[in-house]
Simulated scan of single mutants.
Amino acid sequence: MAEFHLPPPTPFLASPGEPAISWLRWYSGFKNYMTATNLDSDDVADGRKRAVLLHCLGIEGQRIFQSLGDCPTYKDVVDKLESHFGPRKSVILERHRFRQRGQRPGESISSYVATLNEHAAKCNFGTLTDEMIRDQLIEKTHTPRIRERLLMEPDT
Rank of each mutant, 00 (worst) to 15 (best):
Q100S: 14
I138T: 01
V91Q: 11
G29R: 10
S22P: 01
T35L: 10
E118P: 05
H5Y: 13
R134H: 07
E82K: 14
M1A: 13
A121E: 15
K140E: 04
T156Y: 12
D155M: 09
R149W: 11
L81I: 02
P9Y: 02
S67Q: 11
R63Y: 05
S67E: 10
S111P: 02
I92M: 13
D79A: 12
S67V: 04
H5C: 06
M132V: 13
P87D: 08
N38T: 06
V77P: 01
T127C: 07
G58W: 01
A51P: 02
N117Y: 08
M34C: 03
Q62E: 04
R63I: 09
K80A: 12
R63F: 07
R63L: 09
I133S: 06
T115Y: 11
S108A: 14
P19Q: 07
R134A: 07
L150D: 05
Y33V: 00
P7H: 00
V91R: 06
G29Q: 08
R95C: 08
G17M: 05
L128C: 08
W26A: 01
E60N: 03
A14N: 06
I59G: 07
R147S: 10
A121W: 10
T141H: 01
F12N: 00
E107Q: 13
Q103M: 14
D130S: 13
D155T: 13
R95F: 08
I21M: 11
L128G: 08
H55A: 07
R95M: 09
S28P: 02
D43E: 15
A114F: 06
A36W: 04
F85T: 02
P9C: 00
V78S: 00
H5V: 13
R104Q: 12
S108F: 03
L81N: 01
P7S: 02
R48Q: 10
P19C: 08
R97S: 06
H84I: 01
A36H: 09
F30A: 00
K89W: 07
L6K: 03
S67H: 12
L54C: 06
P87E: 12
I64H: 02
A114L: 06
G102I: 04
H142I: 15
D155L: 13
E153D: 14
D43R: 11
R134N: 09
S110P: 03
L68C: 04
H84D: 01
D155Y: 09
T127N: 14
R99E: 15
L128Y: 13
R95A: 03
V113H: 04
H96M: 13
G29K: 08
P154F: 07
M1F: 15
Q100C: 14
E153G: 06
M152K: 14
G58F: 01
S111I: 12
